[in-house]
């Protein structure tokens, strides 16, 4: 079921990324609390059907690159009180990410 695609993944492990600060009207799986936050790509995890179109009657094709991204909890929550080494992991489609410094 994997679609053939020529698109090479734009990011690789270790890249710093910024999550787009957008709230499109259609279904999307990017939670509010990571928008406009900086994280690190842990790995490219593969090509996946696009749930943003599948939710609206589409086929979900072409499949899109997906990444596991790590955030420092202290970057997400200004008053995070537990441990500065704590992390949050989440899987995100490439189109939600922009390269950051």
């Amino acid at each position: 079921m994997r679609a053939v695609t020529d698109a090479a993944p734009a990011f690789s492990a270790g890249d710093r990324v910024l999550v787009r600060d957008e709230t499109p009207p259609h279904h999307h799986r990017t939670p509010w609390y990571i928008k406009a936050r900086r994280g690190r790509v842990l790995e490219f995890i593969g090509m996946y059907l696009n749930s943003e179109t599948r939710a609206h009657g589409g086929s979900g094709l072409p499949e899109l690159p997906m990444y596991r991204v790590e955030f420092d909890q202290t970057d997400l929550w200004p008053d995070y009180a537990e441990s500065p080494s704590d992390k949050l992991w989440i899987d995100l489609y490439e189109h939600w990410l922009v390269r950051a410094r």
């Binding site: 799986r29 990017t30 939670p31 996946y48 059907l49 749930s51 997906m66 790590e70 909890q73 537990e82 441990s83 080494s85 704590d86 992390k87 949050l88 992991w89 989440i90 899987d91």
Partner: peptide, 26 residues
Amino acid sequence: PRKVMSEFGLELEHDVEVRVVDSNSE
């Protein structure tokens, strides 16, 4: 997360790194 875990009876050492995984779709 550590406070939630403690409600489940798990008290983690401070130097253990917690990774919360937000499982969001695929």
